[in-house]
């Protein structure tokens, strides 16, 4: 018979398991998801309105302060939510040594695309 453990059952179980960390990422993914509901619906309506527009009127629309702000907020929320979601999927399906590399590439791509989108939007708002 094994020696009677000194620590209580609760004491041994507390602090272990998946809940020890990751709550912040779980919350952030949902917070960005909530932000994306109005932001993407606004973009969808705007893009439908401009589906027949030429370059000049699209630029005029993107240059308006509200459009610039909302596109930038959308890009930040979109790529943050995407990065967090891809991380969950990668961690669920890739168990080989490639996991770390794939996680890194996914993060770099999300970050780069986000910055590229923001720069293009600001270029339109300030220079174009």
């Amino acid at each position: 018979m094994a020696a009677k453990p000194i620590r209580s059952s609760v004491g041994r179980a507390a602090g272990l398991g998946s809940a020890r960390e990751g709550v912040a990422q779980w919350w952030a993914e949902r917070a960005f998801a909530v932000a994306l509901i109005p932001l993407t619906l606004w973009l969808a309506v705007s893009l439908i309105k401009h589906s027949g527009s030429d370059h000049a009127s699209v630029i005029a629309w993107l240059r308006s302060p509200w459009a610039t702000l909302l596109v930038v907020l959308l890009l930040i929320s979109l790529f943050s939510h995407l990065a967090l979601g891809l991380r969950v999927i990668i961690e669920d399906y890739i168990h080989s040594g490639a996991k770390f590399a794939v996680l890194l590439v996914a993060r770099f791509l999300c970050f780069s695309l986000c910055i590229a989108g923001i720069l293009a939007t600001l270029r339109i708002a300030m220079i174009a």
């Binding site: 030429d54 370059h55 000049a56 699209v58 630029i59 993107l62 596109v71 890009l75 979109l78 790529f79 995407l82 979601g85 891809l86 999927i89 695309l113 590229a116 989108g117 293009a120 939007t121 270029r123 339109i124 174009a128």
Partner: peptide
């Protein structure tokens, strides 16, 4: 999950569209 990954690919198109708009009327 699948639509989420697909939308990730479509977000590349969105960024490309913004870059094309910033680059000028010909690329756009």
């Amino acid at each position: 999950r699948l639509s989420g990954v697909a939308l990730g690919l479509y977000s590349v198109v969105l960024v490309a569209w913004l870059i094309a708009a910033a680059a000028g009327s010909t690329p756009f």
